[in-house]
Design a protein around this nucleic acid. Sequence first.
DNA 1: TAGATTGTTAATCGATTAACAATC
DNA 2: TAGATTGTTAATCGATTAACAATC
Lengths: 202, 202
Amino acid sequence: MEKMSNAARRRLVFLANFLSRYENDRVTSKAIQEATGFSSDVVRKDFSRLGLGGGFSNGYDAKKLLGAIRAELGLPQTERRCCIAGLGTLGEAVMRCGIFDGTLYKIVAGFDFRVNRTEVLNADFPLYPANKIESVVSRMEIEFAVLAVENEYARAMAERLIKSGVRGIVNFTNEAIAESENVFVENVSLVLALDNLCARMK
Amino acid sequence: MEKMSNAARRRLVFLANFLSRYENDRVTSKAIQEATGFSSDVVRKDFSRLGLGGGFSNGYDAKKLLGAIRAELGLPQTERRCCIAGLGTLGEAVMRCGIFDGTLYKIVAGFDFRVNRTEVLNADFPLYPANKIESVVSRMEIEFAVLAVENEYARAMAERLIKSGVRGIVNFTNEAIAESENVFVENVSLVLALDNLCARMK
DNA sequence: TAGATTGTTAATCGATTAACAATC
DNA sequence: TAGATTGTTAATCGATTAACAATC
């Protein structure tokens, strides 16, 4: 299979999420255009790579389509283990707000540089001080980390997580974290989002 | 001036943030490549549109470069007003975690559908029940909203914010919010970020 | 049947990469 | 001078758009 473009991959990820919350049995590329803003042309093109082999003119079976997209993208079929690195205001909120409910991502550990923080908080999963990062991440086979430490600790924390075996980081800090061969970083920053809005408004 | 591509705009937004935290006086496209992963070629190409008119071989003046990027992108020069719509666990954390400290974005109001929620919480800015959205947003001239309500209320809330004059929405929910002529939406979702990581790892 | 919609090809458009003269 | 780095052009590569036959 030829490789997917970055833009196409991101569209499909977004569409998988959109379809997982879609209420009808069938969906058309036109309906998707109206709800998401992606042109129906590009949507059909993206879907054509899935080799659905369906009919011609009656739209897509929403469930089958979702399954095909998830398979093509390699989205989780079984539970995937995550940790939260940094248990400040934001990290604690992520851990408590049930954001992973109904997904296959599961938080299995939390870390903080401050020993008292890990002792004061409690959660449905164990919390550890920073000196346990290496042993816990490798023992629990944690794949993903949500990086929510203070900016100044971001790179040091990321480095330790990566050395311990984490392969994907969702970066909530404002620090740039370098990617490497097998480690990917997604930046989820409120300030970057607002800056992007400003730039698009111009 | 010819219009910027979507990809170039996002790179520049990211680079502006990177440069704002850069500690040296001068910076080269190669150093940027190493820290951010963008190729030095594409970085130089992006910068060339700024018309810096600097020297040839001694890198860029980091401060001048940052100023030129911010001007080109239309990033804030003066304070810009934001509100938080939805004061659940995540919304409250955003409001408390000082994420806008040192930026020109300022939270000036919070909204929630639950009257008791706006009465119980307190903040450095006023909190209002949902029936005040329209009047407060227009009176305070709020430009941006952080959408952090429960998924099922996301579209209704977004619609009311837009009707009241909000022009940019940072969407923390999992619901797709349609953009329109003058209203832009940026999705900042932990689950989308993890899905994108999975898709890239494949 | 008429209208709607898909899947796919061809055409267009645009972005990235490679390369290198200029010059610090 | 030698090495490094910019700014820019040309070449390549890839994505999007337009269009339409197939067919539900």
